[in-house]
Each structure stands twice: as structure tokens, then as C-alpha cells.
């Protein structure tokens, strides 16, 4: 899922300080799972902002809501009767949700309330780790199910580099060397022969290098 972290309160205060009616919109999708932008976080942010502006003696109406998903017009539509009431919206969805909300209500000021970080997994509550960079042409079949693009700091396709030490990456001993993981897994799977085959340069056109991407699935469209 998409992983995000709440923006520092100071930053959000600074974004909304010139308004008097602000709506905070959460998302019940990914950001709820990583506890960055679900209904609970919306309520905490709302209350924190009210406390801040109250003690600062500034009038500020803050309302709170959360949508099933902000990356879907159908759910965004649910705001249509009330959104005009607000001068600005703070969206706690991932970057996709923030943008789609702004797109749907394109004359409304919409600010992001979280920093969207990566696609990853939950290692434990409060600990999330990146796993995929959406390169658009998955090569996991050849790399023991471990992604060298997301998990090697130099996204090498013929790793590991000379900096791999005791299973850790040269960048930082907190990072597992992706290629050590790949090697270990290929060994378990009895696929070490794949390791010696030089991997050709990758076609990055399906990655973000090809420009903003779009999927059109004719088989799904009406």
C-alpha cells in the first residue's frame, strides 16, 4: 500500500492560518492503514488546529470528514453539497487523493496534510518499508522475488556492488543490501544460475522516465 506520514503541525498551521473556514478530509484507504490520514488522524488534526487557533485568539471553523477513497470521483462527489462552505481544504490522502480532490473541485484551495513516501509494507505497527517503485515492467520473476529497483540503493540490475558488507548496504547499515537478499533467495530457490547471466539495460520508458503514465484497459471499459 501507499505509505505516508503526517506533515508537521507547524506546516499545516502555516498553510491554513489566513482562512477562517477549513475542511479536513481524510481517506479510508492506504493512509488509514499507516495511521497518517484516516478519520482518527483527521480528528486529531482538527482538534489540534482548533486548540492552536483558540489560544492564539483567532477565529477558525474546522470541520472534519473522511471519504472511502479520494482517488475515486464517486467518493469525492460526496463533498459537493458542502465544500462551498469552506475557504480551503486540507486533504490527508496520499498525493493522488489530494490531486484528485483538487481536480474535482478545481476552484477550491486544497492543501496536502501528509507527506506521501512510497509503496511498501508494514513491518510492524509504525514501521513501514519500501518494496516497489512501479517500474511498469516487473522483473521479480528473475530476481528471486526481491526487487533490485526498490531495494538496491543504486537500483543495480547486476548487483551487488562492491560496497555490500555483512548483508548491509553501503549507504547505511540500517538498509539491507537488496542484492544480498536476492542472492540468498536465489540460492534457496536453486536458481543461482540466473545470477551469472548479465542483465541487459532496462527499458525505463515504462517507469516515470517515460512521462506521466496512464493505463487504458479496453477490456474493462464500457
Amino acid at each position: 500500500m501507499i505509505k505516508a506520514v503526517p506533515k508537521p503541525l507547524e506546516e499545516i498551521i502555516d498553510l491554513v492560518k489566513d482562512f477562517h473556514k477549513v475542511l479536513i478530509v481524510g481517506c479510508d484507504g492506504c493512509v488509514t492503514v499507516c495511521e497518517a490520514g484516516g478519520l482518527k488522524e483527521v480528528q486529531v488534526l482538527g482538534s489540534s488546529l482548533r486548540l492552536y487557533f483558540t489560544q492564539a485568539g483567532q477565529r477558525m471553523d474546522i470541520d472534519e470528514t473522511s471519504l472511502t477513497r479520494q482517488c475515486d470521483q464517486e467518493y469525492l462527489d460526496q463533498l459537493k453539497d458542502r465544500i462551498d462552505h469552506y475557504e480551503a481544504v486540507v486533504s490527508l490522502a496520499c498525493g493522488c487523493g489530494v490531486q484528485y480532490l483538487a481536480e474535482r473541485y478545481h476552484d477550491k484551495i486544497v492543501y496536502p496534510g501528509v507527506d506521501t513516501c512510497f509503496m511498501g509494507v508494514d513491518l510492524e505497527r509504525g514501521v513501514y518499508a519500501e518494496r516497489c517503485q512501479a517500474c511498469g515492467k516487473c522483473i521479480l520473476a528473475n530476481t528471486g522475488g526481491i526487487c533490485p529497483i526498490a531495494r538496491c540503493s543504486k537500483r543495480m540490475l547486476n548487483g551487488p556492488c562492491g560496497g555490500s558488507e555483512k548483508g548491509k548496504c553501503e549507504v547505511n547499515p540500517e538498509i539491507d543490501c537488496g542484492w544480498q537478499l536476492i542472492y540468498d533467495r536465489l540460492k534457496i530457490l536453486g536458481q543461482l544460475d540466473r545470477f551469472e547471466q548479465p542483465v541487459d539495460p532496462k527499458d525505463w520508458a515504462t517507469s516515470r522516465d517515460g512521462g506521466p503514465r496512464k493505463i487504458v484497459r479496453e477490456d474493462l471499459r464500457l
Binding site: 543495480m156 547486476n158 556492488c161 541487459d200
Partner: peptide, 11 residues
Amino acid sequence: FDLDSTQLIQT
């Protein structure tokens, strides 16, 4: 890191 060392050799 469009290429890695091995791919640069190939190139």
C-alpha cells in the same frame, strides 16, 4: 543509475 557497471561494459 540508468545502467550499472556491467551494463556499461556491455554498452
